[in-house]
């Protein structure tokens, strides 16, 4: 567990470092996610080295963004004022995203 946690944080800090050094328009943790995927793919690290910590983090992932959801209360007025455009845009965009993704795979017989 400790070793796998060290790997996760190691890749996280590597991502943060690269993002900061090169002033990239990509967050460090997203780079860390890419790096760990590549490292696994190239067999630089093995799945069992990182799996214990990563499984636990994924399991409790939803708890970690609760504070952001609570932060919505600060922006009640903005949401209340524009709830209609937000709802319409989000629903139609989601339907379009579902359809475009699915139709490509459906038409190619996947």
């Amino acid at each position: 567990m400790l070793k796998s946690l060290l790997y996760i944080f190691g890749f996280l800090i590597a991502g943060e470092l690269v993002s900061w050094l090169f002033q990239l328009p990509v967050a460090g943790n997203i780079l860390g996610m890419l790096f760990i995927f590549i490292a696994l793919k190239l067999k630089l690290i093995s799945l069992k080295d990182v799996k214990p910590a990563s499984d636990k983090l994924i399991k409790y992932l939803v708890i970690f963004f609760i504070p952001y959801g609570v932060g919505l209360m600060v922006h009640f007025n903005l949401i209340a004022e524009f709830w209609l455009p937000i709802t319409v845009a989000v629903i139609f965009s989601s339907i379009l995203t579902l359809y475009i993704t699915a139709i490509i795979l459906e038409k190619t017989g996947k």
């Binding site: 996610m33 790096f35 760990i36 995927f37 793919k41 799996k51 910590a53 990563s54 609570v70």
Partner: peptide
């Protein structure tokens, strides 16, 4: 909210390593 988030930030801190963990999840599914 700011008062609550003094503690909330300790929770949301773990979003960072969780995104890295998604890379592992992605590899497994892949």
């Amino acid at each position: 909210f700011e008062t609550y988030n003094v503690g909330g930030e300790y929770i949301s801190f773990f979003l960072g390593p969780s995104v890295v963990a998604l890379g592992v999840f992605f590899y497994e599914k892949y």
